[in-house]
Design a protein around this nucleic acid. Sequence first.
DNA 1: GCCGTTTTCGGCCCGACTGTTTTCAGTCG
Length: 605
Amino acid sequence: MTNLEIAELFRRVAAAYEILEENRFKIIAYDRAATSIEHLTSEAKDLWDDGKLDTVPGIGAAISKHLDELFTTGKVRHFDSVMAKVPAAIFPLLQVPGLGPKKSFKLVTTLRLNNPKNVVADLERAAKAHKIAPIEGFGEKSEEDILGNIASYKKGYIKENRMVLSEADAIATLVIDHLKKSPAILRVDTLGSLRRQVSTIGDIDISVATKKPDDAVSWFLRFPHTKVIEKGPTGASLLLVNGRQVDMRVQKPEAYGAMLQYFTGSKDHNIKLREYALSKGMSLNEYGIKDMRTKKMNEFATEEDFYGALSLPCIAPELREDRGEIEAAIRTHQGKPNGLPKFVTLSDIKGDLHIHTNYDLEPSHDLGAHTLEEYLTKAVNNGYSYIGLSDHNPSVSRHAKNQIVAIMKRRKEYYEHHYSSWIKSVQKQKTPRHNLPKIFIMCEVDITTDGSLALPDEAFAYVDAVVASVHSAFSYPKQQMTARVVRALTSNPKVKIFGHPTGRLLGSREGYELEWREIFAVCKKQEIALEINAYPERLDLPDSQVPDAITGEVKLVIDTDAHAVDQMDMMRYGVSVARRGWAEARDIVNTMDYNSFKSWLSKEV
DNA sequence: GCCGTTTTCGGCCCGACTGTTTTCAGTCG
């Protein structure tokens, strides 16, 4: 039973309780347990195996006992009996936007929709036949809404096209640049998932501090768009030419901090924060903080002041996911250990170890677009001390073993020769040599289906280190996939990086399944770094798994997988992933200076 | 049903929006 299935089960129990008019806090408890299970980074079953289920927030004695039964027998008699008290056809309806337990129950019972398999289609037919409007509590408008919502349900609204971070970033930058040109606008920030640097973004939300809201809104409306979705005194929404939506909210400077905090979220963070505030006699909302005794509302110009009023240090947006950041902030405030992390920053990064040049080694996958010299120039501009040339290995199907060895030898000579020529030419321009980036001759090697590496042993003499990655057969069962990866990671001591470890592609491919605890243990023992691949469609390791890697004492490396020089600037997205995963500079090997990094890379365990 | 830095009992996030209401219930983020 997967975490998502358990969460779904809890939500159904909560819905059944809601219809049965159970204690509403019990309903909330089940909903929270569902969310909590959903957000876990390891399988609940694994935690149960280890007897660690009681560490999961929202899982107490009662639910824990139910999960015992679930993992032992495959079902929970108590849940079955609760859900049997309500019609089974309500559950599919909960997936339709706008329909919750109460409305679903009313519809199912009044219209006698008994078949859970067809209930959505049956409801649609009933709506078209105008059988919904006469039902008590419904009307013409809600009948119409139900039809519209069923349509969007059928389109799969849940997976509706979210953007990758880089796309959202690019759009937001254009809008922000536009807004900053208005004299009425004093400050501009992103909000929501973009500000928290989540891997995928729905709408772009932007806040503006202004004393002249009307001027700010009308200036915003001058940004090129196809449609004004709404506009009012507090903000406006535009549909852009590319089909994306941008919302802008305005607030006066004196109360700007509370709005920024509220709309940055996440929802879970805000809920936890409001609970904490309440325990101190304060009530939070998007306008400020209300003292429960005096009923006085206090306004805050900045987030620092807002959090400060709660006796907390300002929590970085990347951490606001209710993954323990409020508890950590309390400890920081009290001067206790295990407080908020000392974040890694972009300027801590000293090199990029996963770069593809256009040197043609007749590879298994894509070549890069630029020369070694062009990447070196970019590395100078980015202030790097070193780069790693990690082209894909030569194609195995098109070459004999000795040909591959010859290619790798030739390549090493090519890179060394070109690097020394480049150094000489740059030195003629009077740049001191000690500021120039060094190179590591590496290779991104396929992990083949049986777990061997797609590079002959003899060829390892011509590389400093290897990035091992899976590029095929993504649907192997978990055990087999784990054995395959473990074999690859332990087959040669020059394997130092496990590239894009989950294999996911945002919006198009789920990652493959791995027994992570086993992978972490192997990486720790072999001193192999897990890659945080900064490519926006990858962001892999995912941020949710970074804390587990750190707890498992596994080192991380942030790489861009650049196939062109400009892509080296995607490093910041990888840094965001690390920050969201609470990583500090000491957790990340490419924050080391050249000498330390070189000795780490060349250390053979 | 969960939970604890004023609590192991007595609380439990907050407001907006919508539609059907005539003061509120349900849903959402």
